[in-house]
Design a protein around this nucleic acid. Structure first.
Lengths: 215, 215, 215, 215
DNA sequence: CATGAATGAGTTTTCATTCAT
DNA sequence: GATGAATGAAAACTCATTCAT
């Protein structure tokens, strides 16, 4: 477990450090998966085979560690968004929603954690922009109700990812049917018009607050 | 909860006690609202203006306190279910969903807490029975897709109440539009059939696990 | 469980009080027997069917309650001492030791508690006086080594009663054989003279301290 | 207890730790001596000049701390047993009893703690084997009553060590005379045969229960 | 740089004792 | 007098974070 340092001082440290970082993140993902935010840093350190000090060197705070865990997930979600823009006209939105949800399901990180991370804001913005485009395209092609707005889709994400998390260990596929049901409901042919969306004024705070509650 | 022993005078002994109990429960609701299950008993005691011992006298366990907080909510939800059965044919289901959600929104208790409480099982069962009836009626009258099952409605509840909780302080009415959207999507006229529901076999465990995770 | 008060106020209280007192003492004996000094007043109150306040009215301190439990035992031990003086010449000492030990075994109260009680001092003195007489008689008749002194017998009591207590629940009769062995060793015919006893100067403190440690 | 990882320099890292450990054990011995098992970890921490966390790092449980305190005593007692086997024929038993008792007196730890510690069982067994040999030898040489068995000697130990403990602070040498008296009584020349020992069947439980009561 | 020992405030829970009813 | 609710000072134990080695 103790990695012997190289005999020649000073130039392979980077490698060790990198390996350690990877181990820490892997352990953190694992432990978070099992315990939620109630895990202890020491537990992570033990599983990673390093001392707590090593973790604190890179992540001065438990919160920072969580952010680091979330980071690659952000990136991947962003990647999905970008690729959705290349989907055949009108299919992008649905494809995006399904892909992101499946990704969540596969990696088991709470959406709140995911989006509350420091630095998530920028990613969020780019994703939002992509979604706006996807939404408009879907409306144009006639696969989405005209009265649906960006906000509706975000809220949908929230509910779906919460569901994914809540049932991951006991009914890991239950979200699929629910998603089918809801997506189908979003198609045109509705019998009742929607009320006006919540005014956008506070929207940022809504998003932020929702995400920060986890910590 | 404590039944006074007689009708004759001399039974208002527990005025102070009753007041304290009420204070404790109020404080607990409040603190839970702010911190989730991460609150400390001492915090509740401070806000209630009592000593921790007072809380422990009635609620030997943190868990018991949470149960006590949830109890009246169970009862009220059950009441809504019963009344929904008396609604004009076909409207009961939607009425039920809207009422329960509104109630959640007004009282701000997480659905997980609500349903994970000791003794919730029985209430759950009665509500489930009512919902089955309501679902059938809605299908009969043609206000609900034929392929929707009880399970779908429960999952819908989960997602909606989670949404309510997550946005209560920042966008307290956002859930309404979302509910409109989803409920409208449940009406007949769908373009795609749903896949088969998750087999009922594990259903009980799903429900139980989801609720117990909160503690 | 709640005893209804008599309709005519004020003159049967004594009886109730007496009954309560008795119940409390019985419960205390029982609980002490099970838990040692680690029992809680509330536990005693519950078993006695009274409120803790009732106990505190008569026994302002846990310690006082323990003293009250010990009292009748003192008296009985004293009684044994008195009767031992009437035993046929020379047999009194052994009879006394056996009787007292058997009494302890039957009632299961630690000797430390027994003798540490407030007001035990006087009883102790009278018993000591009796023992001195019994010892002398035994020596005169030749059933006890000439070099044995009062102190030796007290120490013997301590060791034996500790043994009784430590084995009461698992080997309730083991002390009998040990007592036989030791008593037999006290008879004349020793091969080695004893060293001088510990000087009597500190004797009182020794006795007192030993008993007070329990609290 | 912690094995340093290598002979090469750089292993004295835990100087502070070692000092702290020593301090903790010393403080624990002291506090236990004064309060019995009723001491608090915080008290130990204060006397040792460390935080409670430091104690809990090495002794996750109060019980573990007590075990650690007892451990060296076990070893030393075992050592005495081994050396007793090398004593001149027939003297070993008495030498063993006197040595062990003197050791108890010098170090002031209750026999219950001593023998109840985790891992004491093995030590106990080896000591028991040695005692059986010593007893037989003493009988062979004629310095011990033929009817004395191992059980008698253990019971004797219990009573003597309890006495040592109970009088340590007030009459620290009183046990010596008592031991002389009892040992002398064990020599042949008894006037009365002993009853049969308690059946060995339950013996193990007797021993275990006696020791575990302390915690 | 890594390590893990140390810290100490914080958490849940218990219980002797007081006091309003 | 009796009752049992209220109190709050412990106690055992945890864990994020700091710091000596």
């Amino acid at each position: 477990m103790k990695v012997p340092r190289s005999d020649r001082p000073g130039h392979e440290l980077r490698q060790d450090a990198a390996r350690n970082l990877e181990r820490v993140l892997t352990a953190a993902r694992q432990v978070f998966d099992e315990c939620g935010t109630a895990f202890s840093i020491e537990e992570v350190a033990n599983r990673a085979g390093v001392g707590v000090g090593t973790i604190y060197r890179r992540f001065p705070t438990k919160s920072d560690l969580l952010d680091a865990v979330a980071f690659p997930l952000h990136q991947h979600t962003l990647e999905i968004a970008r690729r959705s823009l290349e989907a055949p006209a009108g299919d992008g939105l649905e494809w995006f929603v399904r892909q992101v949800t499946a990704f969540h399901a596969a990696h088991g990180l709470p959406s709140r954690l995911l989006w509350g991370a420091a630095g998530a804001a920028q990613v969020r913005d780019e994703i939002a922009a992509a979604m706006e485009v996807l939404i408009q395209r879907a409306k144009d092609v006639g696969t989405l109700r005209q009265d649906v707005v960006y906000q509706d889709m975000v809220v949908l994400f929230w509910t779906i990812t919460d569901l994914v998390e809540a049932t991951r260990r006991t009914a890991p596929r239950i979200w699929e049917r629910h998603l089918d049901l809801v997506l189908d409901g979003l198609r045109p042919g509705s019998s009742r018009p929607l009320p006006a969306p919540v005014p956008a004024v506070k929207w940022d705070r809504v998003v932020a607050e929702r995400h920060e509650r986890t910590r």
